[in-house]
Amino acid sequence: MATRKTPYTSKNWLVKVLAALVPGFIFTLGLTGVVGLLCHTNGNPQSASGQYLMWLTALVWSTLLSTCFLFRSGRQAWGYLSLGCAIVWAAYFLLRSTMA
Rank of each mutant, 00 (worst) to 15 (best):
Y8T: 14
F71K: 07
L95F: 06
N12L: 09
A86V: 12
L37C: 01
N44S: 12
G24N: 06
L14F: 05
T9N: 14
L37D: 09
L38R: 03
A2K: 10
M1Y: 06
T98W: 05
N44D: 15
Q76W: 01
Y92R: 02
R72E: 15
T63W: 02
G24Y: 02
M99K: 03
W13L: 09
G30L: 06
T57N: 11
Y52F: 14
V34S: 00
P45I: 11
H40N: 12
G50E: 14
T67S: 15
N42R: 08
S47P: 03
T98H: 04
P45L: 08
S47G: 07
P45Y: 07
R75H: 08
L70S: 14
A48Q: 11
G36V: 04
F27G: 02
L29H: 04
N12C: 07
S82I: 04
F93C: 05
V22N: 02
N42T: 15
L81C: 00
T32M: 09
N44M: 07
Y52V: 11
M1T: 13
W61F: 13
S82G: 08
L94N: 09
S10H: 14
C85Q: 02
L38H: 01
F69A: 13
W13N: 12
V88M: 06
S73A: 12
L56Q: 08
A19E: 04
L65P: 03
T57L: 07
L21V: 10
A48F: 05
L95G: 06
M54W: 04
G30H: 03
L94Q: 11
S10L: 15
V34I: 09
A91N: 05
T32K: 04
L14W: 06
K16C: 01
A2C: 04
T57M: 12
K16L: 02
S47C: 06
T3I: 11
L53I: 09
T57Q: 10
Q51C: 05
C85P: 00
C39K: 05
K16R: 10
T41G: 10
F71W: 10
L81E: 08
W89V: 09
A48I: 14
T9M: 11
C85W: 03
V60R: 03
L56H: 06
Q46H: 08
A86P: 00
T9Q: 15
A48E: 12
S62V: 15
Q76D: 15
P7Q: 15
T6M: 14
M1C: 08
S73W: 06
V22M: 01
